[in-house]
Nucleic acid binder design. Structure first.
Lengths: 195, 195
DNA sequence: TCAGACCCTGACCGATCGGTCAGAGAACAC
DNA sequence: GTGTTCTCTGACCGATCGGTCAGGGTCTGA
């Protein structure tokens, strides 16, 4: 009965992605995943230390790309930051549609888990970048609406080809983002958010 | 110890709204709510038939307004539908910020409950209206992004005055919505990527 | 005074959750 | 053969969930 370890491991991961995407992380039990794979719950816990570890491994690739995007944004401000954030996030959201569906709405509590501790800060920086680092409430609100809405849309429109979805979202973002005034009144107080 | 029934009833409702808003519907136990009120779990279930009934009563006002908006949309198409949908939904989302926070991300499963059976259809019609009843994927995607994003933003920005938030969101929607071609029977399809 | 309605509670129920553990069975090296 | 390692499992655990129930206070009207 024993399969190759990597095989079962992968099957569990795939089943978890499917179930999490439909019923959410908390709404999916280890028993559900085991049933879908065709093994026992104990087998799931043989391959993964616990439920959280399973989720962490599932999200690792997406988190890696998110971190890369965050790195690209360091030092950028204004329109340049907006453009990189828009392209980067749209691309990420489209590519990792399924992973985003997993987190759907459970962000607040999942972010408390140690494996996702810094995602909140990254997404805050992403929002600021998309707002062109503007302090105007309108810009910040628009940026949050777009980030949240894009996540939701990607999780919802699973049947649209990547390229079409990416193009539509990017066009939307470019229409919707509050244009930031160029470089002119840029204050000399280069206030880096780094403390 | 016995308080007036309406008093305890209201306290439970208020406590449930607070807890649901923070930890979500499924993430909040009846015990949590009872603890916040300062009564026993049995008391909560004396005032409300079950957990679902508690949620239903909490959401009733918002659902009523949503239904009214849906009525207003019947018969409208194109730009008129877009405008009514935009104003109506932004207003609703801002007014019922807390109720929206309750549903945050748990929509898919909560919609299965009989008390919320038709909300899915209403929100689908709302999305179509905001898209100007266009069939173009771009318009439909933009509409969904805006609806989902606005919900999320309202649940997040609890500290912004109603008027400011409403104005910012409305401005965003008007920028972001795909303009619908007037009444022309069919567009000249300049760059229609629709297949 | 007393019955009954109302408000509330502790104790309890079955179900399900994430997680543990001893051990069965197969594969392989010697 | 024997021993070891790897994979997998049933049985079990404590905790928590939503929900039930008998009954104890308290108030009120007859």
């Amino acid at each position: 009965m024993a399969r190759a370890v990597s095989e079962t491991h992968g099957e569990i991961l795939a089943a978890a992605a499917r179930r999490f995407g439909v019923t959410g992380y908390r709404g999916t039990s280890l028993q559900d995943i085991a049933r879908e794979v065709g093994c026992s719950k104990a087998t799931v816990l043989y391959h993964f230390a616990n439920k959280e570890a399973l989720l962490a491994e599932l999200m690792a690739p997406a988190i890696g790309v998110l971190r890369d995007l965050d790195d690209q944004l360091t030092g950028l401000t204004g329109a340049a930051a907006q453009e990189v954030a828009a392209q980067g996030f749209v691309d990420l959201a489209v590519r990792f549609r399924r992973e985003i569906a997993v987190l759907r709405g459970e962000f607040p509590e999942l972010l408390c888990q140690p494996a996702f501790a810094h995602i909140q800060q990254i997404s805050d920086r992403l929002r600021d970048a998309l707002a062109g680092n503007s302090d105007r409430p309108g810009a910040r609100i628009a940026a949050l609406v777009l980030l949240a809405g894009i996540s939701e849309a990607c999780a919802e429109f699973v049947d649209i080809p990547d390229d079409d979805l990416r193009a539509a979202l990017l066009a939307l973002v470019r229409r919707a983002v509050e244009p930031v005034e160029a470089q002119l009144p840029h204050p000399p107080t280069t206030e880096d958010k780094d403390s």
